[in-house]
């Protein structure tokens, strides 16, 4: 990892309201390199809003955010180069094939010699045999996998995943789990949201609950792993209180 920043993502005092309705309030967040932060929270807690802010798609009312050391407000293009996003929609065009969509995004991200990289990510998500099929002909799960391929195409420093397991079958969930493990082993970071407590705790190095506009973090500093019952219980209790 060549980035000099000490943290992959650092957010301070983030505030965001929609009209009179505050969604995020004085939120602080810090994700070290090589770690996955899993965010839990009830519907409407602000998980998607937080990810959309980190993805530079929504401007926060207050606060500062740095991704890989680049300030989101002053260097948004640099931040966009360093993030990969998987949201509720695939962001792929139905009438283009998987390969054409990926080539399109590779060109937007200015990737040189992108053909081998496109083949590589299609292989990684298990879509090599459907590469030249139009996206509209793929199942929801396959479209999600294609969206994951799009997000990792430019090898971003930080992956932002909004309920990535939604619509995936067991095999696809397993592929995604392996991919995320490889991702963090390579020193890159992941922030993901999920409603699946078991899955989130098994994939994450840190767990957090978004409640009252803030992230309540449970660190995994012990050697027992994040699946330790203390963290499971804390997250479950925090979610009950949402």
């Amino acid at each position: 990892m060549t980035a000099p920043a000490t943290e992959a993502v650092q957010a301070r005092g983030i505030e965001k309201s929609y009209g009179e309705w505050p969604v995020l309030w004085n939120l602080d967040l810090s994700v070290p390199w090589g770690q996955t932060l899993v965010l839990f929270g009830a519907n409407g807690a602000g998980k998607t809003t937080l990810l959309r802010i980190l993805a530079t798609h929504v401007r926060p009312d207050e606060g500062s955010i740095a991704v890989a050391g680049h300030n989101l407000r002053t260097r948004p293009d640099e931040v966009r180069r360093r993030i990969g996003v998987v949201g509720h929609r695939s962001l792929l065009y139905d009438d283009m094939t998987c390969r054409e969509n990926l080539v399109y995004y590779a060109r937007l991200f200015g990737l040189k010699d992108h053909k081998p990289r496109v083949d590589e990510v299609l292989e990684k998500v298990g879509l090599s045999n459907r590469a030249d099929h139009r996206v509209r002909t793929l199942s929801n799960g396959m479209q999600k996998r294609a969206a994951i391929a799009r997000a990792i195409l430019h090898q971003p420093d930080v992956l932002l995943l909004d309920e990535p397991e939604g619509g995936l079958d067991l095999e696809s969930v397993s592929i995604l789990g392996t991919l995320l493990a490889e991702w963090t082993d390579a020193g890159r970071s992941v922030i993901m949201t999920t409603h699946d407590l078991d899955l989130g705790l098994s994939w994450g190095h840190q767990a957090g609950v978004l409640r009252g506009g803030k992230v309540h973090l449970q660190d995994n500093n012990d050697s027992s792993g994040i699946t330790g019952s203390n963290i499971r219980q804390a997250v479950a209790e925090a979610l009950k209180g949402c």
Binding site: L91, L92, Y93, L108, F109
Partner: peptide, 18 residues
């Protein structure tokens, strides 16, 4: 319309394109 309906506009906005 096509960009809005299929999410392509969002894809453009989160890419490092001015």
């Amino acid at each position: 319309v096509r960009d809005q309906e299929q999410g392509g506009l969002e894809g453009l906005l989160i890419s490092p394109v001015s």
